[in-house]
Design a protein around this nucleic acid. Structure first.
Length: 465
RNA sequence: GGUGCCAUCGCCAAGCGGUAAGGCCGCAGCCUGCAAAGCUGCUAUCCCCGGUUCAAAUCCGGGUGGCACCUCCA
């Protein structure tokens, strides 16, 4: 397994800190609003990583946190009059359901910030006692970046204070010092009691604390891989790394991975621009598997330009897999072809090279179709192809549906009856050699976005696009 | 102002110093009553200019054009 490390900026051989095991921590959502396409892409990127590590024989521990206490949630409370848990429970549930729809495997552990206060308290206390953190007069606790010689080693953003837009608080020792703990304001009821006062966590501390709480680690590293969106490298991951390093005396993660951004129709999607594309809206328009296929079809580190044209183009590629599967009806799968399995897995083991992986699949599809053309009744052949498709599903998370279900997505019962009636009438016409009528009916179906194909087993149909 | 990333066929997209994968679209053929689907074949020298090398899309330098981070963000 090779992984591109976004700190060293090079591809590295993955050598786990503990033989045979892989521990992965990914920054999860702050649950104050619906998930957008960027959340989906991040989750999908690391889903592919988890599946690839699993298929490569590693025992994977995958941790993804839920940030359920935060300024944005507090803002939402004020705005809606709802309680913290009403908001966070609602969006957490929704997030998980949407990720399920995309075929994202659930994490091994998904800790919540509000349930990890004890671990944060421990870590902050340690940082204070070791002299890495200090408390100011209003009760806030800050991390002192000048005490950490390695601060900036992740993002290489140390000496730049020319246009620092970080809020300036006069009592902070350095402008880049960041809040570990925010003292309770009078009006806020989202506070927790700790040794250093009543308050709530700063943004970065939860990840470090959760990792400390849920993982064993070694003398050198806490976990193998830490992942998240490209925007998190600075300041979030830089700060996490600093806290953990100073509190534990060793590095937080051996490898850092960051997925690229999603743009919509060529424009940056962001909270401030107000053009976020919510996953729930995308899922209304497109099936979860089709979205998954599209969003994973481009390498995770590249920027992704989401648009409908490309989505429909990518769907055609998935169609081919299902057309092959359609030829295997009632076939019980046997084992995957070992050469195919190795080639496909090797592509993914090369820093998740999905493009090569998809080309391996395309080649398998073409060869299988060719073989089936000459030996349509070869049971063993069919079993092996079915096994191949099953392996694809396990590794990449698509191809699990029944092909007839897949090709009839978005067609209701009434329409199905209508389509089948038309196809019957056309078959009659064909029997009578009334090709003019048969072609007319086919045209009618085409206008309804229905494609038909005459096969040895009768006429079958597909919904187009 | 600082720090990075990217630029490959009409479109999407691999490539990681050894002579351009794959998909979509298009064209031709096989198959078909005709189609559709499937199969076969065809279609690029890699933004520009220098340099290193026996050899560069791949490395270095300089341009040009996109984008991101430095502020909540995946």
């Amino acid at each position: 397994m090779y992984i591109y490390d976004s700190v060293q900026k090079t591809k590295l051989k993955f050598e786990p800190i503990k033989a045979g095991k892989a521990t992965l921590y990914v920054c999860g959502p702050t649950v104050y609003d619906d998930a957008h396409l960027g959340h989906a892409r991040s989750a999908l990127s690391f889903d592919l990583l988890t599946r690839t590590l699993n298929a490569s024989g590693y025992e994977v521990t995958f941790i993804r946190n839920v940030t359920d206490v935060d300024d944005k949630i507090i803002a939402k409370m004020k705005q809606t009059g709802k309680s913290l848990h009403e908001i966070t429970d609602f969006y957490t549930k929704r997030y998980l359901e949407e990720m399920d729809t995309l075929g994202v495997l659930r994490p091994t552990i998904s800790p919540k910030a509000t349930e990890s206060i004890d671990a944060m308290e421990d870590m902050i206390s340690t940082l204070i006692s070791k002299g890495y953190a200090y408390q100011i007069s209003n009760g806030d606790v800050y991390f002192d970046i000048s005490k950490d010689k390695l601060y900036g080693s992740l993002s290489k953003k140390v000496n730049d204070d020319t246009i620092s837009r970080i809020e300036h608080i006069s009592e902070k020792k350095n402008s880049k010092d960041f809040a570990l703990w925010k003292a309770c304001d009078i009006n806020e009821n989202v506070c927790f009691d700790t040794k250093f006062g009543r308050g709530r966590p700063g943004w970065h501390i939860e990840c470090s604390a959760m990792i400390a709480k849920h993982t064993q680690g070694t003398d050198e590293y806490s976990i193998d891989i830490h992942g998240g969106g490209a925007d998190l490298l600075f300041p979030h991951h830089e700060n996490e790394a600093a806290q953990s390093r100073c509190a534990t005396g060793h590095a937080l993660a051996k490898y850092w991975m960051h997925n690229g951004f999603v743009q919509v129709d060529g424009e940056k999607m962001s909270k401030s621009l107000g053009n976020s594309f919510f996953l729930k809206d995308a899922l209304k328009a497109y099936d979860g598997e089709i979205l998954r296929f599209y969003l994973t079809s481009i390498h995770y580190r590249n920027d992704f330009n989401f648009n409908e044209t490309d989505l429909l183009q990518s769907k055609k590629r998935l169609d081919k897999l299902y057309r092959l599967k359609k030829r295997l009806l009632n076939t019980i799968s046997s084992t995957v072809n070992s050469e195919f399995k190795q080639t496909l897995l090797n592509a993914m083991k090369d820093d998740l090279n999905i493009s090569v992986a998809l080309s391996v699949i395309d080649e398998m599809i073409a060869k299988s179709n060719e073989a089936l053309d000459s030996n349509p009744n070869d049971k063993n052949l069919k079993k092996e192809i079915a096994g191949n498709i099953e392996f694809i599903n396990m590794l990449l998370g698509f191809g699990a549906k029944e092909p007839f279900v897949y090709f009839q997505l978005g067609v209701n019962e009434a329409l199905i009856t209508q389509i089948e009636t038309l196809i019957e009438r056309r078959s009659e016409a064909k029997k009578q050699k009334d090709f003019a009528l048969a072609d007319q009916i086919r045209n009618q179906l085409n206008i309804m976005d229905i494609n038909i194909m005459d096969t040895a087993n009768g006429t079958v149909w597909e919904k187009i696009s």
